[in-house]
Structure formats: structure tokens, C-alpha cells
Design a protein around this nucleic acid. Structure first.
Lengths: 222, 222
DNA sequence: AAACCAATCCTTGCATACAAGACGCTTGAC
DNA sequence: GTCAAGCGTCTTGTATGCAAGGATTGGTTT
């Protein structure tokens, strides 16, 4: 059975990640409890959980505020994610099984198909599976869990930069290289490729922000 | 102002880490709420928070169970911690300030004094400061926060292995080497030394567990 | 004697009522 | 006209009551 608090958390999480709320917006308990048809108690439990994963900022006696990570923080998170993936890759190169290798190569095929048909969502999903498989293959359940958590937190920002022209093809090529390194059992190379593969996402994201800021500055001075 | 829920969380956390409850023990809401003189509501909020940090296992309609990480999981956590520290060290070697370097060398002096007087607690505290300073010096606030979190989770297990004979001196020597590498700005070397410094803690912990198990097995067959 | 089923009790999940703090608005004074 | 203080309202924090889902125990059957 799934508790109402859990259901509410899930729904709210989706809304926040989708960007349904402005950053810094205060979430009113009464309003939301009406919207979800639950009392304030399970809603508050959901708030707690969301605060734990960093999506809300709970201030005593003041309320729950939506917390889209600041851009600087996202850059930092990509920096950590890169290193984490590298470590996963390093371990995975030594510990991965034939079965998982097979599953991995299948996700690469899916990615190829998605690139063919310019299906960003399709690519996005296959990409996620690809990375999760590697986390799992690290053979370190704790690491895998943490990596998934961080991956999830970066979800909306990864999505943004996937839309940059040409990135899909490049990303796919990187996936192929990772797969090759894992097949070869070359842990250093797997680590390095994965590190760059993720780091470049942070860089692309940064580029995006800079261009955004330039645009808004121009608009302001015009 | 600090809410009662926060106060309860803090107190409970302390109790769990201290080992006041058996692993897997179920925490009764009514009993505990009486003990802390609060209602079940803030207590339940505290449960949520503790579950988020991994100290409790909340099962729907069944209750809250104390969750001391399994030994295997602790080993995994040390593995991740080692890599995280290595990354902190790598960044810190490039970004550390004179002030922080100075503060670091002071903690080394404190560690020396603690070793002299065989003061495990003193060493323990100075050791913590040493590591936290390095996290901070990474210049990546997100990384620093995550590293502190993991460090905290490993607290009780680190403490255990510090009691092994000769470990204090060895640890101190490693601290000196880390400091040297940071002063020299040698990021690779700082990373490697820190990785080993932490990994060895996991190894020592593992040794401890193995010897425990042997002992209890002997006792059982005797 | 053991196993299974049922009924009761106990515990959690949720709703609601109440208390207390924060924010805003109004009013008065300088 | 502006600033500050006080009061009122609104929102969060906490307590408690009620409902629903497990667990346990006792009885019955094989």
C-alpha cells in the first residue's frame, strides 16, 4: 500500500521539477491540501521528504519555499556527478557481468534509434537506463543509490542541455566509447570517458546560462 | 526558534548513533512521545527526518525500525568516502587559501598533542576539523556538504577503528603527508594520499568485523 | 500436536481542532 | 508626510480523536 503522504510527495516532486512553481515561491499548506484532497498532515510529511531531497526549503514558522538550486550550485553538482560517474565506471569495468553488458549495448541501440528519429524524450529515457545500469554494475549498492539520487536531482538541467544542437549525436558517440571501455575492462579509460561525458553536460549547462543572462541583459538595457 | 520536532530529532539521532537501541528495534510512537513529553505529531516528523538520513527504516503501517547500516554497507560507504575525500583533496590542492592552510597545520599540531597524551577523543575531534577544512577548501559547497554528511554517517565506525593499536600514529603521519601535498599544490598526490587514508579506515573496520565474527563463532562452537 | 482461521487488540495514518508566532495594516504621533 | 507601534488576521506547529490495517492469541479442525 502507498500512503497518501507518499502519493502527494510524488506528485509535488513532479510539479516542482517540471517548473510548475516559481523559484522561491511559498507553498501554502491549506491551498495545496485542498488541491490534493488530503489534510495538512500528509502534506506536511511530503514537505519534509521534499526538503530532505533539496527541493524545498522549510523555514520554521514561515513556510515551505520552492528551491530550484542556484545555477552555481548546479555547476557544482555536475562537478560532483562527473566524479561519481567516473568512479562508478572504474568499478564497473572490473565488476560488470555479461548480462549487464548486453543490457547496456541494448540501451545504446535504443539511443541510436532515438537520434535517428530526433526523439529527445526517447533518447533521454534510454540515456537514463544506460547510466543507471553502470551505477548498478559498480557493485557498490550505496554508491549506486547516491549516484541515482544526484542524477535525479540534475534531471531538469540535463534535459535542458540535451536540446542544444548536435549534442545528441556527440552524447551517443560518448556512450559507445564507454561501452567499449567496459567491454575491454579498461577501468581508467571508462572512468575518464564517463567523467568527461558528464562534465561536458555541466559545461553546456553553463554556456546556456551565460547566453540566457546575456539575452536578458540586452533586453534590460534595450 | 527551534521546533520541538527538531529537538526530538536531534535527541533521537544521538541515541541511535550512541547505540541506545538494538538494530532492527521498533520504535513505538506512543512510548517515545511520552518519554520526550511531546505529542505523536512532532515525533513522527522527527521519524521522517531520521529516515531521510538513513537511521530509521519507515515501513507503512508497520512502524519505524532502527537501521544500523549493515557491515557490508559500511564497507561500501567507506569506499565512496575514500573517493570523495580524494576529490576534495584534488580540488583543495588547487583552491586552498593561506588562511585555511594555516588552520590545517594547527589541527595537525592538535592531533600531535592528542597522540602524545593518548587522548582518543581529542584526536578524534581534531581529525574531524582537519577533514572538514579540506572539504571546505574544495571550493565546491555542494561537495563539501555531501562529504560532511557521509563523514557524519560513518562517525561511529571510524571511532571504532581508531582504537586499534598504532592506528593513531599512522593516521597522524598521513595527515602530515596530506598537508605537505596541499602546501605543494600537488593535487594528484593529495588525492591519492587522502584516498588511501580513508580506504585504510574501511579496511581496518573490515578487519575488526572479521575478528569479531571469528570470536563469536568460536564462542558458538565451544 | 500442529496448522489454520478468526476475532480482538494494538499501532499507525489521517483529519481536525487549537495554540502560538509572523506579517500586514491601520492609526497615531512627531 | 513618514515612521513606528500595536492590534488583528493568517499560517504554521502541536495535540488529540478517529479510522483502518497488522499482529497476536485462542480456538477449532485435521
Amino acid at each position: 500500500m502507498v500512503s497518501r503522504a507518499d502519493a502527494v510527495r510524488e506528485k509535488l516532486e513532479e510539479l516542482i521539477i517540471e517548473g510548475a512553481f516559481a523559484s522561491g515561491e511559498r507553498l501554502d499548506e491549506t491551498t495545496l491540501s485542498k488541491k490534493f484532497n488530503v489534510s495538512r498532515t500528509p502534506l506536511r510529511e511530503a514537505f519534509q521528504a521534499l526538503a530532505a531531497s533539496g527541493l524545498l526549503d522549510l523555514q520554521t514558522r514561515r513556510g515551505a519555499f520552492v528551491r530550484h538550486p542556484a545555477f552555481d550550485e548546479v555547476i557544482e553538482m555536475f562537478e560532483v556527478m562527473a566524479e561519481m560517474e567516473a568512479f562508478c565506471g572504474k568499478l564497473a569495468a572490473r565488476r560488470i557481468t555479461q548480462n549487464t553488458l548486453h543490457a547496456l549495448s541494448e540501451t545504446v541501440v535504443l539511443c541510436e534509434a532515438a537520434v535517428e528519429s530526433d526523439d529527445i524524450n526517447g533518447y533521454y529515457n534510454a540515456n537514463e537506463t544506460f547510466h543507471f545500469l553502470i551505477y548498478e554494475a559498480s557493485g557498490n549498492a550505496f554508491l549506486s543509490k547516491e549516484a541515482r539520487k544526484l542524477h535525479r536531482q540534475l534531471k531538469p538541467f540535463r534535459r535542458m542541455q540535451l536540446k542544444v544542437r548536435g549534442r545528441l549525436n556527440q552524447s551517443l558517440a560518448e556512450h559507445r566509447m564507454v561501452l567499449d571501455a567496459l567491454v575491454a575492462g579498461d577501468s581508467d579509460s571508462a572512468a575518464d570517458i564517463l567523467r568527461d561525458h558528464v562534465a561536458i553536460q555541466g559545461t553546456k549547462f553553463n554556456d546556456l546560462i551565460v547566453s540566457y543572462r546575456r539575452a536578458s541583459q540586452k533586453a534590460a538595457t534595450a
